[in-house]
Design a protein around this nucleic acid. Structure first.
Lengths: 216, 216
DNA sequence: TGAAAAATACCACCCGGCTGGTATATGGTT
DNA sequence: AACCATATACCAGCCGGGTGGTATTTTTCA
């Protein structure tokens, strides 16, 4: 009978033990390696070539995401599930970027881990319900944003000009000087940029502009 | 005899007249059209298909750079020379991006304009000496920057983590909360980022990170 | 020609980023 | 043992960005 071969990586021994017991209560799973930090996880993965790697996100020496990246690079056939306490958006996105196929919160139901491993082994993805919800919201927001992606065309040429100068990291004062305008006028144009683009800080404007190709 | 056919665009009549007289003292040049604003310049260019378009940068209705963009898009065989009072770096770079082949300061020697037109007509580029100097400095700086491009590797993993969170537009307070650290600690890490990367503001850090591929 | 959009200008207030200056604990290196 | 890098933490002060509120002039377009 062909078991799904699993690597467990978590710096907490108790957690690893618990996971192992949980998994071994299902005969179709077999834990073939354990690791207590990121670097070990990569080594163990390369040594045992597991079907699925379950990685805690917060590990010493090399965090779960960096470990995922390396494992994914070395062993593209090993599916990766990230375990995390946080549903923080940044972490999830980085995990996905690192090649993770699943992202599970630690307070998930036991059955979720079983489902997750089976899913990623089958080439599907698996996320905790909270994560799914968040990602969907993201996606919808993305669509909405793309939809109203004429936003840039809403800008007047003066506003575009000022946006470019902002990307060049010029201060309001400098822009006023370059364009021979009052500081207050620049402030007003910036307000209008904020309103039209629904972005309300310089960093946001810069990210927007860069992604828009106003890179210069 | 085949003349080089030229379009002149400048909102100051006196300037246009002077340029025309200057050019017509050279029999190999022929001014075939004039325009007193950007929109006219584009129209005239499309109507007369000149070999070279000489555009003032500061024109009403449509500035020289935007006009250059449109002319370049419609008539790729028309070489464009930008005339400007300013040697501001941003303008020069935008002019180049808009497809200009030459950039002349208005206080250039008369001969420079002749040389510039002949050069761009021959498919070469031409810049005022001041501009050349500036661009070279830029280039050198660029090389130097690229050379010491290990800068990112100087960062500790904590610093990289914080840099990523900054790109996600998290405030110091939010980062402190996410990482369970004091606000002051985040400030210290940011100082270190500033020092190591020689960048001293959030917008600079963000541009750096984005260009570095920390896009998420 | 008259209304709407764009560009210009000013003031006051708040908040957060940025800096100078300091300090402690820890872990690895020579 | 001495040293350096890293990570943590605190305080005070400055400055610039962001915003609420207002107003005039110029341009554009129906």
């Amino acid at each position: 009978m062909k078991q799904i071969r699993i690597l467990l990586a978590d710096d907490h021994t108790v957690m690893r033990r618990g996971l192992r017991l949980l998994l071994e209560s299902h005969p179709e799973f077999g834990v073939v390696a354990e690791a207590s930090d990121g670097r070990q996880a990569v080594e163990q993965a390369e040594a045992t070539e597991p079907d699925v790697a379950v990685l805690d996100i917060a590990m010493p020496n090399l965090n779960g995401i960096e470990a995922a990246q390396r494992i994914n690079a070395a062993l593209p056939n090993t599916a990766i599930v990230i375990l995390s306490m946080h549903s923080d958006e940044g972490y999830v996105l980085r995990a996905l970027k690192a090649g993770a196929k699943g992202y599970l919160l630690k307070d998930s139901a036991e059955g979720d881990l079983i489902d997750a491993i089976q899913s990623v082994y089958d080439g599907k993805t698996f996320f905790s319900p909270e994560i799914t919800k968040m990602l969907m919201e993201d996606y919808v927001r993305e669509i909405r944003t793309r939809g109203s992606d004429d936003s840039y065309d809403l800008l007047t040429s003066r506003e575009k000009e000022i946006l470019q100068l902002l990307v060049e990291l010029k201060s309001n004062k400098e822009i006023a000087h370059v364009l021979n305008l009052s500081l207050y006028t620049i402030e007003t144009h910036r307000r209008n940029l904020h309103e039209k683009l629904n972005l309300h800080s310089l960093p946001e404007l810069i990210l927007y502009a860069v992604r828009k190709g106003v890179t210069l």
